[in-house]
Design a protein around this nucleic acid. Structure first.
Lengths: 232, 232
DNA sequence: AAAAAAATGTGTCAAAAAGACACAAGAATT
DNA sequence: AATTCTTGTGTCTTTTTGACACATTTTTTT
């Protein structure tokens, strides 16, 4: 037995939902297509999966191409396979979810691909079912960030508690009490005081922390309750 | 533009991880293959995705074939696409996660497919990367059930609180305090007292509840903390 | 028929966590 | 030196959790 005969073979693509944080709001890395189909429209960055390439490798290849980064937080999200989702030809697309610190990426690579960071609040309409993909990614972010403080992936290595709070406020689009947030985050004992202070801050310099990666890995599969319940 | 030329097309399959609960333990619906490759070995139920068929439809077709059920809780889990995962020919497999009440299924259909309910504690080794798929499904169940009381999907329409507790104990493989569990579950106000009592119970008859589906749908996107934190 | 056994429903109390809020302190601006 | 903005930390009250005890219902045993 060397091949499954009589079975249909389909195009398989990968699309990446790349989220970043600039200190104020969540942004999405989108490309303005300069090729057909849908030339001139906004879309996620994607590409076909090669014959001899794992799905994850395909996604990482695309991410590297676009951002110049390698050690990104990437997770497989969902596979979109509606028959008519691509008008040209049926294509299955495996969507990947990536979080990066917005200041880390290679700007030249981004420019070369005609890509731009767009605030989620001003997201344009995207091609095909890419809007659905983004929705799914945001839903996933809410889930994940409620259980794990994985907002760390969106911040620089050294960060302050107020920075982290702003990130969570952006993710959940709500205001949090500064003092309670600080108490809660410190009680996890996940933050290591680097002894340094935030220099760019205009007023009082905030303490810079880094993530205790060992403890984080240990605790990752325990469930926290990170965000308050919405009132019912 | 009518086709993407020069791009490789791949076989796309669907595999279903079907979990059920018999009142005591979690079980997995597995088939003993009576066809090549890997004839005689245990595997998940799966099949190729048809040319003109959505992925979800493909999964539901396979689930209906095997169990005779249509309104199953199904969720797409993950797509497994390692180059060498299928020794015959490269095949991408989209794994689906299904929860059913183990007493509902069509036994004849199950028998016809040479399928069996196997306790997770005695799961045999499966073909290809199906073990990985099952691991992923269990991990997903832990996540989901921590946030949503989605164990309901595994129980009959009317059930008692002790039944629900046994299910959660099976999922998390831990003992829970009866009184605290009851308090917590009732405080969600998700259960409607049917006025009936459990008849098969050997001693005191337990109150049968049903799920308040409206409230459940409303609350689904709020985050609960259903299981206690593991001690660190 | 009474007692024992098994499982269910509900209540109490202390400890822990969460929510609301006040005040002190560092750093730039006026 | 006073003002403003932001950060760090503390207190108090309310809510939730965790650890228990006891009463009730039904079957089984004596």
């Amino acid at each position: 037995m060397t091949r499954y005969e009589h079975s249909t073979r389909l195009l398989v693509a990968t699309d990446c939902i790349i989220l970043g944080f600039d200190g104020e709001e969540l942004k999405l890395l989108l490309v303005k297509r300069n090729f057909e189909p849908e030339k001139g429209k906004w879309s996620l960055m994607g590409g076909f999966v090669n014959d001899n390439e794992d799905l994850t490798d395909g996604a990482e290849r695309i991410l590297y191409d676009l951002t110049g980064l390698t050690n990104i937080y990437v997770e497989q999200l969902n596979t979109f396979g509606e028959v008519k989702r691509d008008p040209v030809e049926r294509t299955i697309s495996v969507a990947f979810f990536a979080l990066i610190n917005i200041n880390d990426h290679d700007e030249a690579a981004v420019k070369a691909h005609n890509a731009h960071w767009i605030s989620l609040k001003h997201k344009p309409q995207l091609i095909f079912d890419h809007d659905k993909m983004v929705d799914k990614a945001l839903e996933h972010l809410l889930y994940k960030a409620a259980l794990h403080p994985l907002g760390f992936e969106l911040l620089p290595e050294k960060f302050s508690i107020p920075q982290l709070q702003k990130l969570y406020e952006a993710i959940y689009d709500m205001k949090l009490d500064r003092r309670n947030f600080s108490r809660k985050i410190l009680s996890t004992k996940l933050l290591i005081d680097t002894g340094e202070k935030n220099q760019q801050s205009a007023t009082k310099k905030a303490i810079l922390y880094k993530l205790d990666k060992v403890r984080y890995a240990d605790k990752f599969h325990s469930f926290w309750h990170f965000m308050p319940d919405p009132v019912m």
